[in-house]
Simulated scan of single mutants.
Amino acid sequence: MTTNGYDALPGMDAPELGPTGRPLREFPVPAPLADHGPARIISMCNQKGGVGKTTTSINLAAALAEYGRRVLAVDFDPQGALSAGLGVQNYDVTTIYDLLLNPKLDPHEAIQPTSVEGLDVIPANIDLSAAEVHLVSEVAREQILARVLRRVADDYDLILIDCQPSLGLLTVNALTAAHGVLIPLESEYFALRGVALLKETIDKVQERLNPSLELDGILITMFDSRTLHAREVLERVVDAFDSQVLDTVIRRTVKFPDASVAGTPVTQFAPNHAAAEAYRTLARELVVRGAVA
């Protein structure tokens, strides 16, 4: 018997398949770390807005912190949604914008703790929208964020950069600073169309600025298995990108906006909900894949 390319042994039932068409896998709870740092840096990227970048940044960071990892989330979007979603102040404080423009500032001054033990944030606000204009004449302007994060990397196991929905200079900075890229992708046709352009940008940064940059995975978000369209888009993504598509799939639920309004991760807002468990599963899968320590 064959199911989606997986052979069942004679006399055995075919394996239960997950949304991606692969057999469901159990990812073990990661062992505690004996020590911390230096951090691996992951950029959360997609030039299309509304695909779940910030939601994933918040909840993946919180889930990894639950597993004893020290995580720094960097809000790199002028909308400041990550800062708001984690309930931290982003006005009248030192932000990532200040750190980009003033190399004399100590990045530790911008770091704020959150309600999640082990999870800190460097906030952002609308001021960041002016950064590209100020940085365009700087020498090695694509590497400014990397220089900032290098000064705090030893304090963390993971630095997660929540990028704005654009492929401009700020996103190039994030990709140049990163070791890996995670692409949240809504299971919707127009979201799928932009992946090729994003992949081209990642390849250019890898070739010209950051040879060590890797694609850590494509994460399907806002998935609704009740619709044929969502299932077809997921099937096309798996066909095109194969093992680069993560097994974990994030389903659509009202719990995410509810948690955002409360300024807390869904892992705290509704710790027993399937949405919280989905991000814990994602955290475990990334550890198994080697994207996170």
Rank of each mutant, 00 (worst) to 15 (best):
A191K: 05
D13M: 09
A110F: 06
P15S: 07
G11A: 04
L160G: 10
T176F: 07
D120P: 06
R284V: 05
E117V: 08
I96P: 00
V88R: 01
G52H: 11
T114V: 03
A283Y: 08
M222E: 10
L246Y: 04
A110G: 02
D77K: 02
D35R: 12
A278H: 02
A65D: 04
R193L: 13
N102Y: 11
C163M: 09
P78V: 04
I122K: 07
R151A: 01
A131R: 02
A61V: 04
Q79M: 04
V245K: 13
T253I: 00
A283W: 11
S129F: 02
N90T: 02
D13L: 12
L101N: 06
L170V: 00
V51R: 05
L72P: 03
G18D: 05
D106E: 13
P211E: 05
P184Q: 15
L167E: 10
D239Q: 14
D7L: 09
L185R: 05
L167P: 12
D127R: 07
T201F: 03
R289K: 09
D92I: 01
L145A: 07
S83H: 04
V139Y: 10
P211G: 01
D216M: 13
R70S: 14
G180E: 14
Y6S: 06
T94N: 01
A230C: 15
G50I: 06
P211W: 05
T2R: 09
A84C: 03
A73H: 03
A270G: 02
V139G: 08
H229I: 15
Q244W: 08
Y189W: 14
L213R: 08
D203L: 11
P28A: 11
T227A: 15
T55Y: 08
G11E: 10
E117N: 04
E26V: 13
A130W: 02
T281W: 00
T171Y: 04
V266H: 05
L282I: 04
D127A: 08
A39F: 10
G194N: 13
L175N: 00
Q244N: 12
Q164G: 10
L9G: 11
D216K: 14
E214Q: 14
L149G: 02
R69A: 14
P78H: 01
K104T: 14
Q89W: 07
D98Q: 07
I42C: 13
Q164S: 08
T95D: 03
R150E: 14
S212A: 14
E117W: 05
A174L: 01
T248D: 07
L228Q: 15
A61N: 13
L219V: 03
R147I: 06
E132F: 01
D120C: 09
A110V: 04
S260I: 02
L167D: 10
N59E: 11
L228N: 15
V136P: 06
L149M: 04
R251T: 11
S115F: 06
L286C: 09
S83K: 03
L170W: 00
V237M: 10
A293H: 15
T253Q: 06
A191D: 12
R251I: 00
F76T: 01
T114F: 02
R150N: 12
A230F: 15
G37Q: 08
Q47W: 09
E186I: 08
